[in-house]
């Protein structure tokens, strides 16, 4: 018998930020993701790992309202309405949510940046979209964010075309975070970057996410990325979540055969 009796007073349930229930999406015969359910709390970072074709990107696209599920619901804690099914919102409401309370960092910066608009304009766009009409303030905020993502202020009027891949990715992050979203979605945020650049980006992301208390859903095939960023981990295979839990628990004590394979396949440096 244990000397410690479990408390009568159960810690109050947290109000989740997002809740997915039984989400499935297929493309004809091809399965995207199958019966995925989870709850995301405010400020929590969830990593989704799996190999190409495991359905992790499909899941991310559904969660971020870019793709509607065949069945299942995705609810989000709207600022004034509480938990609401994002696919039952009107399109303008959903679009507003996506450009204010959410951020989406795409794997390819070209999908997330306006390449013909200056760095400052890229960062300022969301502010102008929610009604900012003071040039000086928009620019100051833009410069502030460039500094936060370690971009030189002298590049504020340069077009992202002239930036390196790592810089473009950091600009994309600044562009998304400027409206102080509560949730950001990241699809392979370090994909296509040099290893040295990856470390810098990860460290930056880790700092920003913690400092601002932002919740995040990060899709990646790189276990080092989730080790550093994610509180929790979901391992996907053939469209299903085969294992989930605390990141270090899943990586250090994997139970599912596929997770064990995944973990044991990583080269130790």
């Amino acid at each position: 018998m244990s000397a410690l009796m479990l408390s009568e007073t159960v810690t109050p349930k947290r109000q989740p930020l997002m809740r997915a229930t039984g989400v499935s999406k297929s493309y004809g015969e091809t399965i995207g993701c199958l019966d995925v359910s989870f709850t995301l709390n405010p400020g929590e970072v969830i990593g989704i790992v799996g190999e190409s074709g495991s359905g992790k990107s499909t899941l991310l696209n559904v969660l971020s309202a870019q793709l509607s599920p065949d069945i299942g619901t995705v609810e989000y804690d709207l600022r004034h309405k509480g938990m609401s099914d994002i696919f039952r919102l009107s399109e303008p409401d959903r679009r507003r949510l996506m450009r204010t309370d959410w951020g989406i960092v795409h794997q390819n910066p070209r999908d997330g940046l306006r390449m013909d608009v200056s760095a400052g304009g890229n960062v300022g766009e969301r502010l102008m979209a929610i009604g900012a009409r003071h040039y000086g303030e928009i620019r100051a905020e833009g410069l502030d964010w460039l500094a936060k993502v370690e971009l030189n202020a002298s590049r504020v009027d340069d077009k992202p075309r002239t930036f390196s891949g790592g810089m473009q990715q950091r600009l994309q992050i600044a562009r998304n975070l400027v409206t102080r979203p509560r949730l950001i979605f990241m699809d392979e945020p370090t994909g296509g970057l040099d290893v040295s650049v990856q470390a810098r980006l990860l460290d930056l992301l880790r700092g920003l996410v913690r400092e601002l208390g932002i919740a995040a859903i990060v899709v990646t095939h790189d276990l080092a990325v989730v080790r550093l960023l994610a509180d929790r981990l979901m391992v996907m295979r053939h469209g299903r979540v085969v294992e989930e839990g605390l990141t270090d628990q899943v990586l250090d004590d994997p139970h599912h055969p596929y997770t064990q394979l995944l973990v044991s396949s990583v080269l130790q440096v």
Binding site: E125, M128, A129, I130, R133, Y135
Partner: peptide
């Protein structure tokens, strides 16, 4: 349709910054 006109100001912003 949804009166999302932030982008129009981006165009003017670009003018001023340049």
């Amino acid at each position: 349709g949804y009166a999302e006109y932030g982008l129009m100001h981006v165009r003017l912003y670009e003018d001023i910054s340049r």
